[in-house]
């Protein structure tokens, strides 16, 4: 197997903060690799190191076989970068933004024009091509961002949180574009806070937290890693929630979560189900819903890191009041 991206032991400190504490990655050529983690986990720093924007303090990395530190100019000829910290010029029109990149990449005026028109058509931006990018909607902006990173037909594409802040329809459109690119043989490194996004697009996922890869595998492997099962209990009377929480936590030997009036807890042993039924019955708690199901990536993340990927203030408050 060939690897489009390899990183070994990347460490990067910013003053007292350690953004990367030894990141190892191996991304097979022609696949989508998901870097999943909460804000501040080190995803963007990893991308910046791989895209030659930032030097790592320790470790080394290659992109397309070239060392990002020793051969940055070669790496830059192979990559495209888009996302929260790499963006288009808002004062230029869609066409001008793509012309700018094309000309900087050494295309002739005519070639740059042709490439811009082609990309604008592909991304359904032809109608808006003559308008300043600042007048674009969020989804159009991201499509233009992505188009700008594709002008040079990169072999490796870095997408740093490409759908953050997008509505579901724009997000789905962007996902379709990414799938098309991969079908054409492009390798994509995608960072995201959305577990669903990694699950949808990536053939392999690395979960990052506090500057380290804490788990890696296919979405299925990651789900299986945590036992893969989740116990869900919803008491008929919300007043019984504390009892349910206590029972679920004790039986599963893990910290349960509450969403509205439903308690969930990851379990490794399917035999806990009868135990929970007996204990709740003995406590006289009537139950509206009781089930064992496969874990979502969200729950995988929780069981790996001890905190949720996307913090939900309401859930936190409820957990505290019940604790």
């Amino acid at each position: 197997m060939t690897y489009a991206i390899r990183a070994e032991g990347l460490v990067r400190r910013f003053g007292e903060t350690t953004a990367l504490a030894g990141v190892d990655l191996a991304v097979p050529t022609g696949t989508v690799f998901g870097l999943l983690g909460p804000n501040g986990a080190g995803k963007t720093t990893t991308v910046r190191v791989l895209a030659t924007l930032l030097a790592a303090d320790e470790g080394h990395a290659t992109v397309g076989g070239y060392d990002v530190r020793r051969d940055p100019h070669r790496v830059r000829q192979l990559i495209g970068l888009t996302g929260q910290y790499a963006s288009v010029d808002e004062a230029l029109t869609g066409t001008e933004n793509l012309l700018l990149i094309g000309r900087l990449l050494g295309l002739s005026r005519a070639q740059a024009r042709a490439r811009a028109a082609e990309l604008l058509a592909d991304f359904q931006l032809t109608d808006a091509a003559g308008r300043a990018a600042k007048t674009f909607s969020g989804g159009m902006r991201r499509r233009l961002d992505l188009a700008a990173s594709l002008v040079g037909r990169p072999q490796v594409l870095f997408l740093d949180e490409p759908t953050t802040g997008l509505d579901p329809r724009s997000r789905n459109e962007l996902w379709d574009i990414v799938r098309t690119l991969v079908a054409d043989g492009v390798t994509v490194l995608l960072t995201t806070q959305y577990l669903e996004e990694a699950d949808q697009l990536a053939s392999e996922i690395a979960v990052v937290d506090h500057g380290r890869v804490i788990a890696q595998g296919t979405p299925e492997e990651l789900k299986a890693k945590t036992g893969g099962q989740v116990l869900t209990v919803r008491p008929t009377d919300p007043a019984d929630l504390p009892t349910v929480l206590a029972v679920a936590g004790e039986v599963a030997r893990a910290t349960p979560e509450v969403v509205q009036t439903t308690v969930t807890v990851p379990v490794n042993d399917p035999d806990v189900l009868p135990t929970v039924v007996r204990r709740l019955d003995a406590a006289g708690v009537p139950v509206a819903e009781l089930a064992l199901r496969g874990a979502s990536l969200d729950e995988v993340f929780l069981s790996l890191t001890g905190h949720r990927a996307e913090q939900d203030a309401d859930t936190d408050a409820m957990e505290e009041s019940l604790a």
Binding site: A51, S87, V88, I101
Partner: peptide, 9 residues
């Protein structure tokens, strides 16, 4: 982020 995009070229 325009500067980063340019520097990655």
């Amino acid at each position: 982020g325009v500067f980063d995009r340019l520097r990655a070229l």
